[in-house]
Design a binder for these strands. Structure first.
Lengths: 243, 243
DNA sequence: CGATCCAAATTGGTAAGACCAATTAGATCT
DNA sequence: AGATCTAATTGGTCTTACCAATTTGGATCG
């Protein structure tokens, strides 16, 4: 199948242009007739390619308007409906077990990798979140169990891509860099000692403090919401009085 | 998008016929011209629908031959490359934590559900595997944490759909019904006592015995492989001698 | 009677052309 | 400057024609 039909090679060419940034997310592809001209195929082949790409969630076709490149975030990514608290509780339970498993057999190379991520987490170049993710992913990988790694990767995908989770995590992570760094250092120390129980405890401690910070932030968000509603009531009352 | 274009409604009609079992996996759909007649649309609309369904991995189109319904197992399901042992180790760590979490607050309804699944697991109507899955899923659901449930569902999907895992699990599960039932009974008892530590231990014990059985099976499989290779060598030697 | 071969039938693949439906852009009017 | 209208541009559906690949059925041969 792949590559045998004309529409498939047309689709591949379009995807290449998207990947090269020539047509970034939200941009509009040339019209069917123009693309057919440029690629030296019939309009049917272009239409078929675009149907294929639409089925794959890569573009969206609008009648009379054109074909638009979808932002990858607009795909259905199969993310569950999970709150930040639920995610953090799950991470507490599962990532701590991954850390304990990894601590049994740490290599020098892995420890050096983790040290490097820790350093980047303390940096100021906006790379901290990615380094954080890689720190955790490296630990899961060091467990030597592909299923464990897969689960940790899924948890991190939820953390990075779920709107509901980000709304709570982002303000917390904005304010807690120092505590987070210290906790990750403690995790690394336990791993360096190849002490599974210590690694489990250090990882759980990290998430316990994270949940506490999240409670602070969500309380602040709830207070902000209450204040907003009180202001609305005040304005409505004054408006009624004036009428 | 959905339902707006003709090809989309054609695709939906085809999927309905597949879901109704009228065109089961591996069967061949009617030809484009015939489908176009039956549905009262042009052949182009049928082709477009089939391209869409092919992009979704639901059918496979062969030139000169026809469109064939794919077995769902032939999709790319995004399954990681995980061994049966890795999966079981991960389940040991993670499902035991889910059970401990669920044990904190078990409802009468959930316990009754679990009892029902246990009964079906002991039955002889080939329903045991599904009941087993639902037993575990219900526990994860009783944890009250959607992220935990999501992880357990993913682990079960790997268990059910990964060829490598099934090759090891199936012979084990064929032989160990009695032990499995007893272990699940122990898990249910711990949950009934709302004892998180006991639930964790019972779940881990279930997997410890499963891993032992898996070791037995894989040793048998390895011996079988050695015998097969020895037979091949013998046959090759005899053939050479005869030439 | 079974196996083989070959032509015809059937299947999907590609294209051109016609016309309809929806949107956008530009011109005109107030 | 904003509103309205029209033409241009866009995608949507269909018909027709012909090509490429596979399957089927009948004829022939051993």
């Amino acid at each position: 199948m792949p590559g045998r039909r004309l529409y498939h090679s047309v689709a591949e060419k379009i995807v290449k242009l998207i990947d090269q940034g020539i047509f970034p997310p939200s941009s509009r592809l040339p019209g069917e007739r123009e693309l057919a001209d440029q690629l030296g195929v019939s309009r049917v082949a272009v239409r078929e390619a675009e149907i294929f790409l639409q089925a794959r969630g890569i573009i969206e076709v609008k009648m009379g308007s054109g074909a638009y490149v979808l932002d990858p975030l607009e795909h259905d990514r199969g993310l569950p409906n999970v709150s930040a608290f639920e995610l953090t509780e799950a991470r507490t339970l599962f990532e701590s077990e991954a850390a304990a498993l990894a601590a049994r057999d740490m290599s020098k190379e892995t420890l050096k990798l983790l040290e490097g991520y820790l350093e980047r987490m303390g940096g100021t170049d906006g790379d901290a979140e990615l380094a954080d993710r890689e720190f955790h992913r490296t630990i899961a990988s060091a467990s030597g169990n592909a299923a464990v790694l897969h689960v940790v990767e899924i948890l991190w995908r939820i953390r990075m891509e779920s709107e509901a989770v980000r709304r709570v995590y982002d303000p917390v992570c904005h304010d807690d860099a120092e505590a987070r760094l210290a906790e990750h250092r403690a995790i690394l120390d336990a791993l360096r000692q190849r002490n599974p129980a210590a690694a489990r405890v250090a990882m759980r401690e990290h998430f316990r403090r994270l949940i506490q910070s999240m409670l602070d932030v969500t309380e602040e968000q709830a207070l902000e919401e209450l204040r907003r509603k009180a202001n609305e009531s005040r304005e409505r009352f004054l408006t009624s009085f004036q009428l």
